[in-house]
Design a protein around this nucleic acid. Sequence first.
DNA 1: AATTTAATTGACTGACAATTTAATTTGCAA
DNA 2: TTGCAAATTAAATTGTCAGTCAATTAAATT
Lengths: 230, 230
Amino acid sequence: MPIPPPSPPPAPPPIRRRRGRPATSTGPGRDDARAHLLDVALKLFSEQGIAATPLSLIARRARVTPALLHYYFGSKDKLVDALVEERLQPLSAALGRRLAEAGPNLRGALEAFVGALLELLSANPWFPQLWLREVLNEGGQLRQRLIERVAPPVAHRVRELVQRAQAEGRMNPDIEPRLLLVSLIGLTVFPLAAQPIWRAIFPSDDLTTDSLRRHVLALLLRGLELTDAH
Amino acid sequence: MPIPPPSPPPAPPPIRRRRGRPATSTGPGRDDARAHLLDVALKLFSEQGIAATPLSLIARRARVTPALLHYYFGSKDKLVDALVEERLQPLSAALGRRLAEAGPNLRGALEAFVGALLELLSANPWFPQLWLREVLNEGGQLRQRLIERVAPPVAHRVRELVQRAQAEGRMNPDIEPRLLLVSLIGLTVFPLAAQPIWRAIFPSDDLTTDSLRRHVLALLLRGLELTDAH
DNA sequence: AATTTAATTGACTGACAATTTAATTTGCAA
DNA sequence: TTGCAAATTAAATTGTCAGTCAATTAAATT
């Protein structure tokens, strides 16, 4: 028996608006149509993937016609460009800066960074999904920029910090300096993107972003602290 | 200047084969057409995503017509089913067995499990990409199957193991039992999927899957072992 | 040999998505 | 007030994709 399709967001009833420029009403969301379209697109893209989201769906959700999307953005590709440029990049860049600021006190820096990261991500719930998809996607818009601009300084900074700490005997020497950043992301961005899944498997309310923060910091700072059974 | 689109896999020139059942040639790949189609589909799906890969592309790559895909699989959905059934399930079943074998010695079990996981993943490089792409997003074809079948037993087993170990004082009590599996995946599957990225940033050969294994185990078993600067 | 079964393509269909064009309506500046 | 620019839709266009079907060729079976 085929698995019932996980019913994609139900389409709101089609609305009728008269042709032509609408009277300037001060209804909510009506003030900046373009920004509103970006919001709606961002939400749907992160939920269903870019390719799987037709412009017509975005349009319906925003109570406009697909033609308006073309009026504002020119094409679907350019809509994605605009999203990356105007929504993803700033956050991604902010994150990079946060890491680059890491002071000499590694423990404090780590706590601050993980905290800030998780805060930022849960304030922008669409970010992890879209970021992962765009970055991991061979043809992804963000990927190029990440590889060329954002990641290298951060990655090298982290490597240096780890190397120095190891040289001074202040850090587990088995940690691979070049891999710590990847681990950091895998322990934060990835779990947030996967949140709907583990929420479905452990349906309880007490599994918050804060649990995740404590868990990740515990893992990083002390590991599992395994002791063999007596 | 816009980044040049990292040209998606170039389409091989369309081939001409006579209509009708072909003479049995012993050319490579010609022996089991069905299996070959599965291979090609798997590769493309993991590179571009399932929704973004038209049957016509799979067909062109395999030097056949789309109609043949329907002949063998009936529909695109059923092609995905076949892939899951015949390629993914065996892998995850093998992993599940590995976990089930986990003896009372948690440290050894963890080492064995992470080792087996990484080995499996790097022997099947398409897995991490495909898994992330299709599992992580709402409309993903594999997501339902994972949530309903594969994940729950494993997730609950891991939670139990952690809880028991914590109750007996054999494990860091700050670890959240329900989140350890997610962390485990974030530390293994994600880095492998992101491999092309960190390879681009640290272009050296000595960063192997084995480095990753040691790094991950170090992190899990002992954490960073940070000491503040004196 | 004759007949059935398997494998394969070419041509076709229906749905739907992206994009274009031509109205239409309103705001605003001269 | 008149006229141009902005914002919006309706309708048409074009393209692509999944899926169907009949025709064709070769293999297997009788």
